[in-house]
Amino acid sequence: MASAEPEYKSSSTSQPPAGVDYSKVDVILRFLLLAASVVALAVIVSSDQTELVLFQKILVPQPAKFKYSPAFVYFVAAFSVSGLYALVSALASISVIQKPEFKLKFLLHFLFWDALILGIIASATGAAGSVAYVGLKGNSHVGWIKVCNVYDKFCRHLAGSIAVALFGSIVTVLLIWLSAFTIHSRVPK
């Protein structure tokens, strides 16, 4: 192979449009993830509802809160983390657009952290989804009664939050795809 300089130059002259486009899409996706995390958090945190429930023949006010279930607490924690990460990484991604010389280093870090965040928020969405499903349908085999007929607002908020969380997970998958495409297009063979 000749010197690396012409190789690098040719790749940089052929790549700029694609590279620049990718970085912009990257920033947009990161802000989408931030928005999704914030919305999911806001909706689930505002889901508290108190209803009168017949308990041993007396009507008792029974509140439903997300913090009563460890799955929802995990959900809130996971999306706080992903929101924070999305903010930081979006800023980092913007700074990479301005200083492209650090792009490769940042790409690897992004890939690693994106994959970790994907694991965290996908499991949080799964956890919240499965508990909410039991709340919606109940389970006669183990005697878990459904509660969504009583706590309708609570369940609506949960459903909305989980839907937004699903969107956030999809955005994270897209982010990883973007990083994978960029890295594979850069690996010389």
């Binding site: 460890p70 799955a71 996908a122 969405t125 799964g126 956890a127 499965s130 039991v134």
Partner: peptide, 21 residues
């Protein structure tokens, strides 16, 4: 990447239900 998402959501769902049990 898709499999990571699928497996982790499945794990999350099963762990949440297991904790409930």
């Amino acid at each position: 990447a898709l499999m990571v998402a699928l497996l982790f959501s499945g794990n999350g769902a099963a762990i949440a239900i297991g904790l409930l049990g």
